[in-house]
């Protein structure tokens, strides 16, 4: 095939106002305007969203799964970051 590759875009949909945009998948498109059009056709055929983001896939920087322990495990021992760590007498009421 002589043709060039059509870039890949990640698609995010906001289901309704008040919710964050959520990743739903990807589309191929030559430019941003066409990516939005394709995302609309592919991912919102039944009122799934009110707003779309498309982001060039190669612009996303992801953490390495093998760093998961290093990055996320230390918080497991920091129980003092949670409200239940602190003792408040019941008489004080809800806090």
């Amino acid at each position: 095939m002589a043709e060039g590759r059509t870039p890949l875009w990640e698609v995010f949909v906001r289901a309704r106002n008040g919710l964050a945009h959520k990743h739903v998948g990807s589309v191929h498109a030559a430019d941003a305007a066409m990516a939005l059009q394709a995302a609309r056709d592919v991912y919102t055929r039944r009122g799934e969203g009110l707003s779309l983001w498309v982001v060039p896939s190669n612009a996303i920087v992801a953490s390495d799964p093998s760093d998961r322990g290093m990055l996320f495990e230390p918080t497991g021992s920091k129980i003092y970051r949670h409200p239940t760590f602190y003792e408040v007498p019941e008489d004080v009421g809800h806090m």
Binding site: E3, T6, A29, D31
Partner: peptide
Amino acid sequence: GAWVRDAALAHAAKQ
């Protein structure tokens, strides 16, 4: 559909 894909890519490159 090849000409459509080619044209879209050419347009994107020009922009």
